[in-house]
Design a protein around this nucleic acid. Sequence first.
DNA 1: GTAAAAACCAAGCACTTGCTTGGTAGACTG
DNA 2: CAGTCTACCAAGCAAGTGCTTGGTTTTTAC
Lengths: 194, 194
Amino acid sequence: MPERPKKPSKAKARILDAAASLFHQKGFAAATVRDLADAVGILSGSLFHHFPNKGEILFAVMENVIIEMDASLENALAAAIDTKASLRALIRNELEFIHGPHGAATAVLVYEWNTLSPENQSRLLQRRRAYFARWHTVLARAKAEGLVSQDPALLRQLLHGAIVWSVNWYDPAGALSLTELEASVLALACPSQS
Amino acid sequence: MPERPKKPSKAKARILDAAASLFHQKGFAAATVRDLADAVGILSGSLFHHFPNKGEILFAVMENVIIEMDASLENALAAAIDTKASLRALIRNELEFIHGPHGAATAVLVYEWNTLSPENQSRLLQRRRAYFARWHTVLARAKAEGLVSQDPALLRQLLHGAIVWSVNWYDPAGALSLTELEASVLALACPSQS
DNA sequence: GTAAAAACCAAGCACTTGCTTGGTAGACTG
DNA sequence: CAGTCTACCAAGCAAGTGCTTGGTTTTTAC
């Protein structure tokens, strides 16, 4: 009888971790429950002891990351001393999620949103809106102060696109540092400052 | 004459049209050959009279749009009278593809690139690189002229992200016109001008 | 120490997947 | 007209899909 690694009560977390990378790597539809079970080190049927179906695993991955992302942004904004620092926090936070430890889950959240069933989408909609509301608040203030010139809703989408797309090209181990990338995105938003 | 020009049959075009929308809508992996055949109005097996396998349908969708996209950009750049007009052409061209008649195919090209087999990726790589080279040329000139301040390669990725992401939120029938969107993206790139 | 609870296995079911095979209807060409 | 070619149908196969069931092992709680 081969010994299993002792990871007592963190089974669900292990599944979600593996699911995030797998769904990111192969896409939700192409990733099979057997792939996922292999990555975790269990048999495919055992997954359904923890989740009722494959779709709920996707949901859980997304819910986790959206909660952490919003909480992280809340903290970052609380520590920002002025509007420009808030602007930087918006960008920095999203970049850190996309390229940090939660990168896979964040990418899944962004790129597999339409894969979610409508019911599961609406289960996440409130948090999603709350997160975007933080963006809107900061961007609206930035515009009022003349820091940025574009419409907040439009600017949010443009910046969001620029940031999340970086998952497809940016290499954290490469020459460009995250801070430099952050500065570049910030420069897109509010050009007047250096 | 041994070689005669291969004309795309009408049936093949119908399949590719339906495939573009379907792959865009449901994703390549989740779209089945039966879905596709239904959309075309034939039986699933009949698809393989036109294409050897499902993956080659994806490839054909992508190859078509990448060729047209590059040709369209070439024309637009040839008509641009100065660097700023060229900059505008880069942005406009991509926006028109994402939101015009080739929108579905363009989205598939962008978002399903990693779905392509490595062999098929390299079959498209040359055209892909040629397209990006046009961007680089213009952006490098723009930087030399002081129109933009960011590194060309970096700026290209940021703009590309902002533009392609618009497929997820922009509604051509809505209040914001394509021209206004184009102006906004241009403002991201070269803020100094109005 | 023991019993409940949680985690997992072993096997497989019902269905779907991409794709194949062998054939047919109709248009085109000589 | 016969002959060829393209587009399609009808039927189905082998492999893979998400998920279920019934039982066993491991962990936790008292």
